[in-house]
Amino acid sequence: METAIRIANLRVDYGETPVLKGIDAEVGKGEIAVILGGSGCGKSTLLKTITGLIEPREGRVEILGINTANLDEESQSELAKRLGVMFQYGALLNSLTVGENIALPLEMHTDLPPAQIEQIVRLRLASVSLEGTQDRMPSELSGGMRKRVALARAMALDPEILFCDEPSAGLDPVTAAEIDELLLTLNRALGITIVIVTHELLSIDRLDGRLLMLDEGQVVFSGSVGEAQRSKHDVVYPFFHPGEASS
């Protein structure tokens, strides 16, 4: 399997506090990788570092064969167009309508005529089951709808890798399952590599991806969901069997 993301000895500090303490990991093309762990273990920091929002103190991140360190502005921009990011709370631009939010990357990075962009926006909205909402403002949407719009926007430029920060957190079980199904469909139908940060056990089970478990800024487990469920590791076992003592 070709490698989509390769991370080597990644170290990130917040001020004097080390948050990521030497992460090594690889994600194959077309794979679903799930980064999981308890609150404050460094999941979101890892995702932000991979997507270039945080600069690491040390280490190397290679995305689609490109070393992200010291990229000039143009190369950074070219790489960003090949990635989609869905933020935890959607991060929709509140001053734009739903349709304008999804159209934004298309307007800025392509020469497509407005009519064609509108078609794509409608398609993206339909793919997240939100037909007819393009003229609504983000403030008029529920939490689940905002996340689905964020997913549609992240998919606007047909990215090769999709990053999702806690896509189903804070949602009711039905909406959370819908989001997971959407992600699975995108992965199966389009072969997109998906990297998801979550600590929702149901989602982890449904997505059935390769797990990367973090604890105190380090990878403590890498493997399938089944392997994780059988693991007796001090950190992994309580995560998958909450309330039970590890034997």
């Binding site: 933020f87 991060a91 990053f163």
Partner: peptide, 11 residues
């Protein structure tokens, strides 16, 4: 609300 980060990720 991470809107600035979202813009960066959209290049």
């Amino acid at each position: 609300s991470e809107e600035l980060d979202a813009l960066r990720t959209m290049a």
